[in-house]
Design a protein around this nucleic acid. Structure first.
Ligand SMILES: [Mn+2]
Ligand SMILES: [Mn+2]
Ligand SMILES: [Zn+2]
Ligand SMILES: [Zn+2]
Lengths: 151, 151
DNA sequence: ATTGATAATGAGAGTCATTATCAATAAGCA
DNA sequence: TGCTTATTGATAATGACTCTCATTATCAAT
């Protein structure tokens, strides 16, 4: 049962390893962006990371955050979600297995779920179509317990 | 077994009815845009409709197409999809029941499927979370029969 | 430690898809 | 056939990135 702290540490080490392997450099900027991304939970966008970091690092550029977040995705430390059609958001992927989402249209809250039966049936579906899947997303929009009208 | 022609005719009538009901006007532009949308199959975007129509109607404005397509969605004649994160696309909704998608990352082709077991299990999932769903999307990305490498 | 090659950064310009603005036009009812 | 006003088309504006490029910083080799 690895806890968050351990996982984040491993994730960072993994990221550093990848950079070396690809002859990319571990810059101060990349480090602080990755650290903040790992520390925070939920679905973050580049701008949020940028705004949170600019206080302590006023010289940090927004483009660098966009670049780093893209890098994180390529490194599979982050996976992208986009529920609203507006901003791209990123969630932890390192040590976080696949899951699907319930998205509340009232308060914006999201819940994660996994259902093995659904996953299994999907395998059958793709087989029927001769389709070789690489990833999928199942997103259910509606109203959470707190937001649904109780009538 | 209503055929496409009948369904499209009904869809157009329904649209006209809605306009009247909302004291909106049935303009020449709206009519040709809706007609083309209904006539074409697949996932269309505003630009494609615009480009196809500008030949015959060179004075048509692109903004009008964007506006009309939004109207079509509000009228539930169209439903929106966005597989790539780029352009918004619209597919027929009138007389076309819910379905999910297989999207080929090789050739861009999409296939539609419905699986009642998956739909049923989703109902169980949302019940568990006290969630009141309004809609969902299940999109499976990968490679179709023609595009998958046969190794 | 110092150097040097070059990867990365920051500021701002550019892009793309879409939306807003607004004067001119045209539905549709009287 | 007017009259009211919803709608249009041209264009400006916007949001969310992405690119450009001169400057800076990393890091392997000395
Ligand atoms: Mn999630
Ligand atoms: Mn479809
Ligand atoms: Zn809610
Ligand atoms: Zn294909």
């Amino acid at each position: 049962m690895t806890n968050k702290v351990d996982r984040d540490k491993k994730a960072l080490e993994y990221f550093k390893g990848l950079l070396q392997q690809k002859k990319m450099r571990l810059t101060k900027q990349r480090e602080v962006i990755v650290r903040l991304f790992l520390e925070k939970e939920g679905h973050l966008c580049a701008e949020e990371l940028y705004l949170a970091l600019r206080k302590q690092y006023p010289r940090l550029g927004e483009a660098t955050v966009y670049r780093t977040v893209k890098l994180l995705k390529a490194a599979e430390l982050a996976s992208e979600v986009n529920f609203t059609g507006k901003r791209r958001r990123f969630e932890h992927a390192f040590g976080h297995p696949h899951h699907d989402h319930l998205i509340c249209l009232g308060c914006g809250k999201t819940e994660e779920f996994v259902n093995q039966s659904i996953e299994k049936i999907q395998e059958r579906v793709v087989r029927q179509y001769g389709f070789a899947p690489t990833r999928h997303r199942l997103e259910i929009f509606g109203y959470c317990r707190d937001c649904r009208t109780t009538e």
